[in-house]
């Protein structure tokens, strides 16, 4: 299944169809193709990690921080409310 990376700084991608655990996910980032197996089932238009995101580090989409990892997140893992915390940043 294909996944879309919106910004080159992102560490997540949006899957373009429903994905079953173990299924190969492919994405393009910075002009280079990548592939990884999904670690869990992921619904259509939800996010997978395209890089390791250690606990406490920012989850990046649109090139910006959308939250922080609540646990260590592996490449191919499902990224959503179960493993991302809101973290309001001030200027």
């Amino acid at each position: 299944m294909k996944a879309t990376v919106i910004d080159e700084k992102d560490n997540v991608a949006v899957v373009l169809g429903a994905v079953k655990a173990g299924e190969e996910i492919t994405w393009v980032k910075g002009g280079a193709p990548f592939t990884a197996p999904a670690l869990r089932d992921v619904p259509v238009y939800h996010k997978i990690a395209t890089a390791q995101i250690p606990k406490g580090q920012p989850v990046v989409k649109y090139g910006e921080h959308i939250g922080i990892a609540a646990e260590d997140i592996q490449v191919g893992d499902y990224v959503h409310v179960h493993n991302v915390l809101n973290n309001r940043e001030e200027l």
Binding site: Y45, K61, Y62, G67, V84
Partner: peptide, 15 residues
């Protein structure tokens, strides 16, 4: 639908 945080939702518009 896949949106995790308010930041993510608003960024989709701001983008």
């Amino acid at each position: 639908g896949g949106l995790t945080t308010l930041e993510e939702k608003s960024l989709g518009c701001i983008h």
